[in-house]
Structure formats: C-alpha cells, structure tokens
C-alpha cells in the first residue's frame, strides 16, 4: 500500500513552510508519496481569510475535493493552522494525522479531532493563542508542545533557538511516523 501524504497548508504561505516542509520530508524519507496542496481560492500573497467566521467555508471548497480524491487511500494528513479544518475529513476517512498549530479555539476543528479514530499528533506552542495545552492533551495522548513558541513555532531569543525547537518538533514527528508506519 502506498503511503500517501496530504500536506494541507495554513491560510497563507503554502505547504512548504518550515513546520510543514520538514515533517513532509521525514515522511518522504519513509516512503511517503507527498501531495502538497495549495488553496485554489487564495492569492498566497494575501491572507486567505478576511473574516475568521468565513474560514471553514473557505477551506471546505478545496478540502471536499481533496478528500474525495485522496480519502479512499487513507493518506497521512499533515495539516497546519487553517488546514486543521481538515480534521473532520481525516476522521471520516480514518486517516492518521499530524496537526501543526491546529486551531483549537475553533469548535469545528475540535469536533473533528474528537471524532478521530486513527492516531493523531498535535504540535503547538504555548505562546500561540489558537493552542490550548489542556484541550490538546484531552484530544490525543500524542502531544508535542514547545514552550513560548508562537503560531509559527518561533521562540523568543536568537533565531537558532527556533531552529532547535523545530528540530525537536521533527524528532517528535519522526517518532510518530515510526509508530504509525512501523
């Protein structure tokens, strides 16, 4: 069985940002076949969502299509931020998932995470307002939390500290991949 990997981006910046590119590379090195996704309705140079209330509807246009195509192969989903609206789709298809900076303040995302039957890794930073440490641990036994990291997993201090934090995230991702793909 192929190990397909859907890389679902945040609302800006696409699927190649560091917090997606390195986890995706970790999956590729384990035989994952990467499918990097770009929102078709977005001009990547401007924020995709003017009003946060519109976010699920915005995302759903592409998510419905992507999961209709790829869901049946039960891909690993690596999603970040706005991409965490894919949680309901991942649950419906029984896809394992890695959620980077998921929007835990959004009911739709949390409901999707609660409905999951396959293993999920949640990654977030304590300085990210969309993160919720208690809720994350309630939703999954697999949580990697970075102290003081913001929504882009950047920590205060020298930039190399953020690269070190990213290395810790990637190590957690690799452990998770080895667990689900053995």
């Amino acid at each position: 069985m192929t190990r397909r990997v859907l890389v679902v981006p945040g609302g800006m910046n696409g699927p190649m940002v560091p917090t997606l590119a390195f986890p995706a590379e970790a999956a590729a090195r384990r035989g994952g076949e990467l499918v990097p996704l770009w929102w078709t309705r977005a001009d990547p140079s401007v924020p995709a969502i003017a009003d946060p209330a519109d976010a699920p509807a915005f995302a759903e246009v592409d998510l419905a299509r992507w999961f209709a195509e790829h869901g049946p192969s039960r891909p690993l989903v690596i999603g970040r931020s706005l991409g965490s609206f894919a949680a309901a789709h991942a649950a419906r298809w029984g896809c394992p998932a890695i959620w980077m900076n998921p929007l835990l303040h959004r009911e739709e995302v949390v409901a999707g995470l609660r409905a999951a039957t396959a293993p999920a890794l949640l990654v977030g930073g304590t300085a990210d307002r969309s993160w919720n440490p208690g809720l994350a641990r309630e939703l999954s036994p697999r949580v990697h939390e970075v102290a003081e990291a913001d929504h882009g997993l950047i920590v205060p201090g020298p930039l190399t500290a953020s690269v070190t934090a990213l290395a810790g995230v990637v190590a957690a991702v690799e452990d998770f991949l080895d667990e689900i793909w053995g």
């Binding site: 696409g14 190649m16 940002v17 590119a21 990547p44």
Partner: peptide, 8 residues
C-alpha cells in the same frame, strides 16, 4: 520556483 517566500 517551488515553495514560496516562506519556505525554510
């Protein structure tokens, strides 16, 4: 040509 300006 691949990742955009926010690639690593």
């Amino acid at each position: 040509g691949t990742g955009g300006p926010m690639a690593p």
